[in-house]
């Protein structure tokens, strides 16, 4: 007679090994497991998490308001070198761990608040592009015919221009400013989402379960929303993650050219641009914003790559 205890033990083993009883691992848990196996992806996730925390808690982290001019309030001059008391900087001097900028504002605070601007911008552009792109892509793919042709040719035209160049044109028309930069970058990233969605829809709508739904009398909208889109989501998630990186880079580029964020808003691209002339005399003012842009873009790219690997069933071991 096998004791009750042994049975429980066996059951537990079986569950852990997913051999005997219980539900099989869900797609979601499989993905998470696969994602965790990829070091690059995890590093990316770590960077992005840190950046998001930095953006959310910016007022707590930064010692000053990013736009506070310290002339007359502290004994610091413009473009002061970094001064960290723990590293042996004269305690008499006020501490500015990344120095001050040309307008005597705390560089560290501006860098921290810059994360807010860049991340917000990245997420919003991608969200807009994702919604609009998916909408048109899905309809084009499902309906086909002239609507498909028309939509996709428009997308091809947008795609035909180098994205930053087209963004420049759009901002020139709308006028410089962060909001317009956001719109411009969103517009230029729409085609990618539209095309991917359309491709997914085209293949999914031929599958048996869609046919089954049709046979059951589901409407076109129901099929697209309930059946097709959830299954087309995987590549879109990857694309969106990578898209955030591109959007942040393009926003920084536009701001560098003076078309994005306007002073005094702390934006990395703008900060880089205003100090580009002093790269030799005040390297810290150029280095740190540049570094932040690089780290952010790297973080999202690593995370996106990791996600792609994790979500791609063909890579399933």
């Amino acid at each position: 007679m096998v004791s009750k205890k042994t049975i429980e033990k066996l059951e537990m083993q079986a569950q852990e090994g997913n051999l005997l009883v219980g539900k099989p691992l869900s797609q979601w848990r499989l993905t998470v497991r696969r994602f965790r196996e990829r070091k690059g992806g995890m590093v990316g996730l770590g960077i992005v998490t840190l950046l998001v925390l930095m953006a959310v808690f910016a007022p707590l982290i930064s010692p000053y308001h990013p736009n506070e001019v310290l002339i007359g309030k502290e004994d610091v001059g413009p473009r002061e070198k970094p001064c960290i008391h723990a590293l042996g900087c004269d305690p008499e001097q006020p501490q500015h761990i990344l120095g001050t900028d040309a307008n005597v504002r705390d560089e560290f605070s501006r860098i921290v608040f810059g994360a807010r601007v860049s991340l917000t911008l990245g997420f919003f552009t991608v969200t807009i592009a994702l919604i609009v792109g998916t909408f048109f892509g899905a309809i084009a793919g499902y309906v086909g015919g002239w609507f498909d042709n028309l939509t996709m040719r428009i997308m091809d035209v947008i795609l035909g221009f180098p994205s930053l160049l087209l963004a420049l044109v759009i901002v020139s028309v709308l006028g410089p400013g962060l909001q317009n930069a956001l719109i411009a970058i969103a517009v230029v990233s729409i085609p990618a989402y539209a095309r991917v969605t359309r491709a997914q829809v085209l293949s999914i709508k031929e599958t048996d379960f869609v046919a089954a739904s049709l046979a059951l009398g589901a409407s076109g909208r129901q099929i697209v929303v309930r059946r097709v889109l959830p299954n087309a989501l995987t590549p879109l998630v990857v694309l969106a993650t990578l898209g955030v990186a591109t959007a942040i880079l393009e926003a920084a580029g536009l701001s560098f050219l003076g078309l994005g964020a306007q002073p005094p808003l702390a934006e990395w691209g703008t900060m880089l641009a205003t100090e580009r002339n002093n790269v030799f005399t005040s390297p810290h003012l150029v280095f740190f914003p540049g570094l932040m842009i690089m780290i952010t873009v790297l973080g999202f790219n690593l995370m996106g790559d990791g996600l792609r690997d994790a979500l791609d069933p063909s890579l399933n071991k």
Binding site: N67, V69, P78, N103, P176, G258, Q262, P263, P264, T274
Partner: peptide, 24 residues
């Protein structure tokens, strides 16, 4: 030019509460 414009912008805000947008 950029730094002076930014400082005048900051001064207008701090001293007179004038919201000035900097236009290059």
């Amino acid at each position: 030019p950029g730094n002076v414009a930014a400082d005048i912008q900051a001064q207008l805000k701090a001293n007179l509460n004038i919201d000035a947008e900097v236009v290059v």
